[in-house]
Design a protein around this nucleic acid. Structure first.
Lengths: 128, 128
DNA sequence: GTTCGTGCAAACGGTTTGCAACAAT
DNA sequence: ATTGTTGCAAACCGTTTGCACGAAC
């Protein structure tokens, strides 16, 4: 973990390490506040501002991606390779769909548009 | 326009008519504030609160759909039938992609997920 | 005169920022 | 000493809400 931060030119402070240990290893798609709540246990001095700063730093450095999948909040995802998302409409939870889980065709034929990236956003119900 | 509002059980006030005439006939995907700025010219007494109330009302009644395609703001789209979206990364502008513009396959084979709707969100550059 | 819609301003929730204290080099 | 990071609080921005006024039935 220290090595990963160092590789991105991120100075490893205790707060950043604590945030990294949670957010780089979760499939929860947490919001910034959820990160704060989760990590505060292990690092009681952690402030909200530092969480936001850290998440933005990680995003700039390519360790995370921020997605606007819910109204009004950003969710963070350590899964930075291309993939799709499923949102459970009952719980609001976000799930990753592997790139090969669905197939998109025809995006290269869109006239006048240079598509750099795309993703499918699916909504529905997750069966228990 | 009056007929459309009436058909949805919406009492046609001057403010609502002014908002409707713009937002139900645009391909701009405006934010609430952009609606306010655009419509204020024709209806100077229009307040921000009424714009938000009206857009939410129209959305409840199915005249509009709200999308979270940009960080932190909702954009409104009178195109309520299923379609996809392209976001110009330079300008932030949102463009509709017709449903048949790209094809998605395999979404019915996702185990454990009842997909109710989906859309492709594409990002890139629009050629001039 | 009750109901509904409006405008204003205040409140709200997520996020950013200014700043003083502090740690590390 | 300089540089960079933190915590706190205040500011900020998009949005919602409380409330009193006003229009329509």
């Amino acid at each position: 973990m220290l090595a990963r931060l160092a590789a991105c030119g991120i100075q490893p402070t205790p707060q950043r390490i604590a945030v990294a240990e949670y957010v780089l290893n979760t499939a929860d798609h947490p919001t910034a506040d959820e990160v704060w709540i989760k990590v505060r246990h292990r690092c009681p001095t952690l402030s909200r501002a530092t969480v936001y700063n850290t998440l933005n730093l990680f995003t700039e450095k390519g360790l995370l991606r921020a997605h606007s999948l819910k109204e009004g909040v950003a969710v963070f995802d350590p899964h930075v390779a291309p993939h799709h998302h499923f949102i459970d409409e009952e719980t609001g939870k976000v799930f990753d769909i592997p790139w090969d889980g669905v197939k998109v065709t025809g995006e290269k034929s869109l006239r006048g548009l240079e598509v750099r990236e795309y993703q499918v956003v699916l909504r529905g119900r997750k069966r228990k």
